[in-house]
Amino acid sequence: MDKKYYWTDESNGVVTVGLTADGQNELGNITFVSLPKVGTSLTTQDTLLNVEADKAVSDIPSPVAGKVIAVNDKATDDPSLLNKTDKADSWIAKIQK
């Protein structure tokens, strides 16, 4: 998945990651997500999350390397949150660089 499909917000070495409107459109309505476990170390070649959606089933790589320090657990119960434009609801994970 192209980097234009991610948004990232960095503060004090912590990067919050989510899907842009382009990423959401590429996937379609998200129906299932498998998020990384807190404490997982990722490289940019590692899968950040697995997504099942209307248009695709995808393994989405991490846009940054680091340690997962938080995940949006609400998205596990309600994957459609990742289709929202409000970053407070639609973030995927927080990664410490």
Rank of each mutant, 00 (worst) to 15 (best):
I92C: 05
N12S: 13
V33T: 05
M1I: 05
M1K: 01
Q96C: 08
A70H: 13
V64L: 02
T31N: 08
A53N: 07
L42Y: 12
V15A: 02
M1P: 02
L35M: 10
K94Y: 10
D77A: 15
K87R: 12
G13K: 04
V14H: 04
A56H: 07
K67A: 13
D77P: 07
A93N: 02
S58W: 06
A75E: 03
Y5C: 14
K74L: 14
V14L: 12
L27V: 12
D9N: 08
S41V: 14
N25S: 11
K87G: 02
S90E: 02
V57Y: 12
S34L: 09
G28K: 04
A70Q: 09
N83L: 04
N72R: 11
Q24G: 13
G23Y: 04
N29G: 13
T44G: 06
Q45Y: 07
V68K: 01
L19C: 01
V71M: 10
N25I: 08
E10M: 08
V68M: 08
T16S: 10
D54K: 10
S62T: 05
Q45W: 05
G23S: 08
K67V: 13
Y6E: 03
N50R: 06
T85L: 05
G13N: 03
K84H: 07
V38N: 11
N25F: 09
V17Y: 01
A53K: 06
G13D: 04
G18W: 00
S11R: 12
T85C: 01
T47M: 06
L27S: 04
A88Y: 03
D22V: 13
D54H: 10
K87F: 05
V15F: 02
P63D: 00
G39S: 13
F32M: 14
Q24I: 15
K4V: 14
Q24P: 08
K94C: 14
G66H: 01
S90N: 15
A93E: 03
T8E: 12
I92A: 06
T85E: 07
A75S: 12
G66Q: 01
L19E: 00
Q24D: 08
G39F: 06
D86L: 05
G23Q: 04
N72G: 11
V51Q: 01
D9M: 05
D22N: 12
A75H: 02
Y6D: 02
K94Q: 15
I30P: 00
I60M: 10
L81A: 09
W7E: 08
T16C: 03
I92K: 03
S62G: 01
W7T: 07
D46C: 10
S34P: 02
K37G: 09
P36K: 14
L35I: 06
N12W: 05
L81H: 07
K74M: 11
T47F: 02
V71S: 06
K67Q: 15
G23C: 10
M1R: 01
N29D: 15
V33C: 03
D46S: 11
Q24H: 10
D54T: 15
V68T: 07
